[in-house]
Design a protein around this nucleic acid. Sequence first.
DNA 1: AATACATATGAATGATTGTTCATATGTTCA
DNA 2: TGAACATATGAACAATCATTCATATGTATT
Lengths: 120, 120
Amino acid sequence: MVNRKEVPKCDLIHIHEGTVKAIQGKLPDEEILYDLADLFRIFSDSTRIKILSVLLESEMCVCDLACTLSMSQSAISHQLRTLKKSKLVKFRREGKSVLYSLADSHVETILSQGMEHINE
Amino acid sequence: MVNRKEVPKCDLIHIHEGTVKAIQGKLPDEEILYDLADLFRIFSDSTRIKILSVLLESEMCVCDLACTLSMSQSAISHQLRTLKKSKLVKFRREGKSVLYSLADSHVETILSQGMEHINE
DNA sequence: AATACATATGAATGATTGTTCATATGTTCA
DNA sequence: TGAACATATGAACAATCATTCATATGTATT
């Protein structure tokens, strides 16, 4: 019989408790896992994916992004705000326009790995 | 003045229309971008991220996953269903248990790229 | 066959989120 | 300074989704 004193939420334990604890010890901190989920949530919307795909090709202002994607300026701006918050895009002002571009190369890697997965 | 006949949804065009069209031509098909967003939506929930992180370490049955993550069997099972649908995990029966494991190596790459991004 | 164990699933609910609409902020040019 | 342009933002609404609860399905053991 397995000692279940220290893992009370599980009725049945196949691996022994030591193994459960070893794996729990190997897991990244819960906070990091939340941050990871938050990051991927940014990629989980098709509008944001489209914006990132466009920026992969070229720096662009809000209006042209809206134009290219046939969406409202407001919708694009709201999504750019989200992308800014998570540091996936950066921006610079140029006259009346604000030009957005990708913040770092992880975006490309993450997108291309996703592509590889769905192409299987 | 820029000819705006063919891109009617945009009031102002800074790049010329040809460039907009060139970029639109370079973008992956809209369907693929939707699939990409759908894939990343799977990674956007902390429960699923936790499950994937555990499976990165070891194949495991539903009950032990629930135990390791201190969550209900039902919640874990529902999420495994989602993960199965998107082919991120595979499974095999062994007696009464069903053992889950990662389906391919993209999961690890995607997770580690995400980690790199948030560690900057 | 009956019981206990392990997992799966349908319905319901609370919470989150993307878009729209209206409007505010910031910039340029006359 | 005023007008037009470009972007940002707050509130509201519709839609999506993760969990819970109850229960069904599938497997092993006696």
